[in-house]
Simulated scan of single mutants.
Amino acid sequence: MISWPCMLKLDGDDELIYLDSLPDFNSQCNDFIFSDDDYVVDSLGYCYLIELISGKLGLTKVDKTLSTDEVIQLIRAHEFNKASVCLTKIHFFTVSEAISSLTN
Rank of each mutant, 00 (worst) to 15 (best):
S3Y: 06
I90L: 09
L19A: 01
N30V: 08
V85C: 06
V95W: 01
G55Y: 03
L102K: 00
I75W: 07
C29N: 11
K61I: 12
F32D: 06
K89G: 10
F92Y: 15
T68I: 11
E70V: 00
D38E: 11
P23H: 00
S43D: 09
D11A: 13
S67E: 10
D69F: 08
S67Q: 08
V40R: 02
G45I: 07
D38T: 05
L49D: 09
R76L: 06
S27W: 11
L44H: 09
I17T: 14
I2Y: 05
D38S: 04
L59E: 05
H91I: 12
S21C: 02
V40K: 03
K61N: 10
S27I: 12
D69E: 14
N81R: 14
E15S: 15
S67W: 08
G12V: 11
S101R: 01
K89Q: 14
K89D: 15
I75V: 13
V62N: 10
N30D: 14
S3L: 11
L66G: 08
K82A: 14
D38F: 02
T65W: 00
A77T: 06
W4H: 03
K82Q: 15
I17W: 13
K61E: 14
L57E: 06
A77H: 08
H91T: 12
C6R: 01
K61V: 10
T94Q: 02
L59K: 03
L22R: 11
S21V: 02
P5R: 00
T94P: 04
F80R: 15
S27Q: 11
C86M: 12
L49R: 10
L44E: 15
S67D: 07
E15L: 15
F92Q: 14
D36F: 08
D11I: 07
K9A: 05
C47Y: 04
G58C: 04
T60H: 02
T68V: 15
G58T: 03
I53S: 08
L59P: 05
T103E: 10
L10G: 08
E15H: 14
C29I: 05
D13V: 12
N81P: 10
L59N: 05
D24F: 00
E79C: 09
C6H: 02
F80P: 06
P5Y: 01
K9S: 04
S54E: 15
D11G: 02
A83N: 15
D14C: 06
G55V: 01
L59T: 03
S54R: 10
S27H: 11
L59W: 07
S43I: 10
I50P: 00
L44A: 13
L10R: 15
L19I: 04
L19P: 03
Q28M: 09
L8V: 06
I72Y: 00
L49N: 06
G12M: 10
W4M: 03
R76S: 05
A98G: 10
F93R: 13
E70H: 04
T65Y: 02
V71W: 05
H78S: 09
I50A: 00
L102W: 02
D14Y: 11
I53D: 09
D42F: 03
E15G: 11
D20M: 08
F25E: 09
V40M: 07
H78R: 10
T88R: 11
N30C: 11
I72N: 03
